[in-house]
Design a protein around this nucleic acid. Structure first.
Lengths: 216, 216
DNA sequence: ACCTGAACACCGTTCAAGT
DNA sequence: ACCTGAACACCGTTCAAGT
């Protein structure tokens, strides 16, 4: 952060030198600011360059296209999400089902607090196929969930079977709820009656009940 | 359709007169063509005007903004989806759970066949709050699902309780799966092993099992 | 090696003017 | 009443040129 360093040293020289490879992260920060402030449609390569105090053409030294910059922002979002999920799971090491419930609530809360970011992470602006690093980051979130699924199986809380097949149902439900929240598509009556944490908890409980070992 | 009428009459006059209120639907058609051909980012007000053979400013006689045009396209998409869902439900009048499974498969198939359209219907380009007609169209899809949920309750296939609370779990799961398909975010291993219809069927079965009446 | 300035072909939107 | 043409302020992207 040369800007902060300059301020500390009291030099008046404006941050006209973004060498040493930090323009890349400054652009990611700039795009994130625009994303949070103006929504997905307000994110602009030129705008991110302005935020970083750099010319409109400078970003092309670090990203081949706008969508590559967006992919980097999305990637950082997934890293955030994975941290949040892991933290939630760690708080419930005793019960894998409680861990899954807490993760679901963490995901939906993340989506509700950063709707534009969540949309970008999953939306059409960035197709993972074109951005391997983004795919890896998204895969890490999936892995965290899969770990808990396997623990549930070991603990006998859900029936044996292909964990991936069970996991995608849970992932669909949680992600679907998150997307509905982000897009404000939940029926207003449902939202008035329940917090999104309660909804996430209920949805998780229903799916886990549907995956429970067959009695007898 | 003056174009078709003109062709029928054999007149050579190009379609320069879009009076009588049909420019509106010609613009919706034009935007739909661009959406299908170039994806969400390729839809352009000017492009839709070109498709309709009209100047760039003409759309503003019929839509106050680009997003209003997109909302009209999304609305038509929901009408399509509702028809598809209703047809699927009608084919399984004997079993409400089978009807729900068929509806889920119809929704996911719709999403897989028209990914850009599905994204537009649920995405950030159009916020329902600003477009009441779109909200109504989306509400109709929700109503179709709710009807089947209530039938399941009456038939004793799912437990008593607030149908809206049960419905949103099912909706989250189906919509979540559809969104994962559209955004190509399902783990490749899962996709290789199962058709999307099978995945939709399995997901529906899990949720319905989780909502089943408590034994005893 | 990294950035700037100017340019190109596009946008959404507005507004006078045409018929 | 409905549409056109020209304009404005933006985009993403490219490319010569600067240090």
């Amino acid at each position: 952060m040369p800007r902060a360093a300059a301020a500390r040293r009291g030099t008046a020289r404006p941050r006209t030198t973004y060498h040493h490879g930090n323009l890349r992260s400054a652009l990611i920060d700039g795009a994130s600011v625009l994303l949070e402030r103006d929504g997905p449609l307000g994110v602009t390569l030129r705008g991110a360059a302005r935020q970083a105090g750099v010319s409109q053409a400078a970003p092309y030294r670090h990203f081949p296209s706008k969508s590559a910059l967006l992919a980097a922002v999305a990637e950082a979002g997934f890293e955030d999400l994975v941290r949040t999920m892991s933290r939630a799971a760690r708080r419930h090491r005793a019960s894998p089902t409680a861990a899954i419930e807490a993760m679901a609530q963490a995901i939906v809360r993340f989506a509700a607090e950063h709707p534009s970011r969540y949309r970008l992470m999953c939306g059409p602006a960035v197709r993972g196929r074109d951005h391997p690093a983004l795919l890896r980051a998204a895969g890490a979130a999936w892995d965290v969930l899969m770990t808990s699924i396997r623990e549930c199986q070991r603990a006998g809380r859900i029936r044996p079977g292909d964990p991936a097949q069970q996991g995608f149902v849970l992932w669909s439900t949680i992600h679907g709820l998150a997307v509905l929240v982000v897009d404000e598509q939940l029926p207003p009556a449902v939202l008035r009656a329940h917090s999104i944490e309660a909804l996430a908890g209920y949805a998780t409980a229903v799916v886990l009940a549907g995956l429970a070992p067959l009695a007898g």
